[in-house]
């Protein structure tokens, strides 16, 4: 039951079989097989139900600090017709939300929580402050971190992972879980390729071993044309999500 909105979601029930351990009379061994983050996963599904009710497709944007998440979101509105809002996970300051609001983009700052990742409960709190009816898509800008956010489903539909050219092409091997979770990897700051030894082919090869079917997009905010592939990818993801939604209903 959702305290903020009163909506209820069905909890799946697990069968716990209590077996008495034959060797030890007073000890009992309980077989469980329970996802450790099941509570978060349930809340994440609840968030997705919220988005679905409003035909909104949600994207979790993850990367290292400074890879260009906020910058991308600041610029995207010039190129995409999709109406969007941003749930901002920069927990220490309201800088990123302020930057977006200054550009006329709807942004809501998550206030509570630990600083290394967002979870589904934090995102849920923010959801009730956003008018989903007026949106096509919604972004969650996660905390800048390539490790912790990868373990948490926050209730979005797709994961966007950014890797900026100055970080180096070895980050895919170093942070495999994050790159495995990606639905699209955006190589950002490609205007800097001439100045760094970033090998795009090597990045692609490493990504193929971990996540063979992932989409890969190159982007530079200095070059308007590079926004086309991302804009198209978002539009397709949104269309596909709406279709899946209709089929489920």
């Amino acid at each position: 039951m959702c305290q903020d909105c009163g909506c209820s979601i069905t909890h799946d029930h697990h069968d716990h079989s209590l077996k008495t351990n034959p060797q030890l009379n007073d000890k009992k061994t309980l077989s469980v097989i329970h996802k450790i983050l099941s509570k978060n996963d349930l809340e994440a599904q609840h968030n997705r139900n919220h988005f679905n009710q409003h035909q909104v497709t949600a994207f979790n944007i993850m990367s290292s600090p400074g890879s260009g998440k906020t910058t991308l979101l600041e610029h995207l509105c010039q190129y995409s017709n999709l109406r969007y809002a941003v749930i901002e996970g920069d927990l220490e300051t309201s800088r990123d939300a302020d930057r977006l609001i200054a550009k006329g983009i709807l942004a809501y700052q998550i206030q509570t929580g630990s600083a290394c990742h967002l979870d589904a409960f934090m995102v849920h709190g923010a959801l009730h402050h956003i008018k989903l009816d007026e949106l096509d898509i919604c972004f969650v800008e996660n905390v800048g971190n390539l490790v912790c956010p990868a373990s948490y489903d926050v209730g979005t539909h797709k994961n966007i992972v950014l890797l900026s050219v100055p970080e180096g092409d070895d980050k895919i091997e170093k942070y495999p879980v994050m790159f495995r979770k990606a639905d699209v990897v955006v190589i950002t700051k490609t205007d800097l390729l001439p100045y760094f030894d970033f090998n795009l082919e090597h990045a692609k090869a490493e990504l193929y071993k971990l996540n063979p079917h992932v989409d890969l997009i190159e982007l530079s905010v200095k070059d308007a044309a590079t926004f086309n592939p991302l804009v198209n990818w978002l539009a397709t993801a949104h269309d596909n999500n709406l279709t899946a939604n209709i089929q489920e209903a």
Binding site: K28, T29, L30, I33, I36, L210
Partner: peptide
């Protein structure tokens, strides 16, 4: 941490296990 088939190198594989954290069993008094 590679999901390609080690036998035929195909990328058409399904990860059956190895991506989750599960509580499996509790021994209680």
């Amino acid at each position: 941490r590679v999901v390609l088939c080690p036998d035929c190198n195909s990328a058409d594989t399904r990860v059956v296990d190895g991506e989750d954290m599960m509580l499996m069993q509790l021994e209680m008094d």
